[in-house]
């Protein structure tokens, strides 16, 4: 088994060129939104909008401007190339009822498109809203961390295409060292809000695609405390169990008591 591999996405150097999106679409030959006739989102310069079955990379534009200020002097852009997090504890893999979602030798999470039957359990299980149905295969799809390229010793298409090295590919230990150094540098330059999201093991055991962020996770559309769906397994099982016992008791009392009643009233129908 190879060492765990992943992405380190440094959002401070992302210029929003979307080369990663294009490289991903091209390598994986993904269909275009609405056959290339996309509509304009109307609320952002970003028209990709979200990650889903045909968008495995998505450069998120966070336009922090005060609309009441006509000069827009105080605004800033935050740009982040979003992707599947390849969680160390993956909610999608956990619930997948066909075993289509597997963990590879690179510690990444991959959906097999010939096994998935499109039940969509993984979509509601993913804490980051990464997965969607691909309209061509009618199966759930997402970033594979270019499993096919990794297999032959190439780096993923997106990080290869990134002109500013905002997306970096490598072993997790290597990337983590690099990321920590970058955070240290930024802190030295006075950018003390810089921090790493998912590099350690605090968020769902760790994210194999982790990020350097400059604002709260929510601003980037990331949950502060993502969880596995199975956290509700025991609470829900106990609830259902209590229900089964109560309903069983009610059945026992009602259907049995009646016999007693009738017995008292000389149950002539007893056979």
């Amino acid at each position: 088994m190879a060492e765990p591999m992943g992405f380190f996405t440094d959002t401070t150097v992302c210029i929003g060129c979307k080369a990663c999106e294009i490289a991903c679409k091209q390598w994986n030959q993904l269909p275009a939104t609405n056959g290339g006739q996309n509509t304009i989102s109307g609320v952002s310069y970003d028209n990709t909008r979200q990650l889903d079955g045909i968008h495995w990379r998505h450069v998120r534009f966070i336009e922090q401007f005060d609309t009441r200020d006509p000069n827009r002097t105080d605004g800033r852009w935050l740009l982040m190339s979003d992707v599947c997090k390849h969680c160390v504890q993956a909610g999608c893999l956990e619930v997948c009822p066909t075993g289509a979602i597997v963990r590879t030798e690179f510690d990444t999470v991959v959906i097999q498109s010939d096994v998935c039957n499109g039940c969509r359990a993984c979509i509601s299980a993913c804490p980051f809203g990464v997965i969607g149905i691909n309209p061509v295969s009618h199966t759930a799809q997402k970033c594979t961390l270019c499993y096919d390229r990794l297999k032959v010793g190439m780096e993923p298409a997106c990080s290869k295409a990134c002109p500013t090295d905002s997306i970096q590919f490598g072993t997790i230990s290597q990337l983590r060292d690099r990321a920590q150094k970058r955070v240290g540098d930024l802190h030295q330059q006075g950018q003390t809000e810089a921090y790493l999201y998912g590099a350690d093991d605090k968020i769902v055991g760790g994210l194999n695609s982790f990020f350097l962020l400059m604002d709260k996770p929510e601003v980037y559309g990331l949950p502060k405390d993502p969880q596995l769906p199975s956290r509700n397994l025991a609470p829900s099982g106990i609830g259902s169990g209590i229900g089964a016992v109560l309903v069983g008791l009610l059945g026992l009392l009602n259907f049995r008591k009646r016999r007693m009643d009738r017995f008292a009233a000389q149950g002539h129908r007893e056979s």
Partner: peptide, 17 residues
Amino acid sequence: NVDSVVEIHRGADPGYK
């Protein structure tokens, strides 16, 4: 549940629609 080949590209069709 894996075979010798992990199939990941059944959704590939750049000309779709």
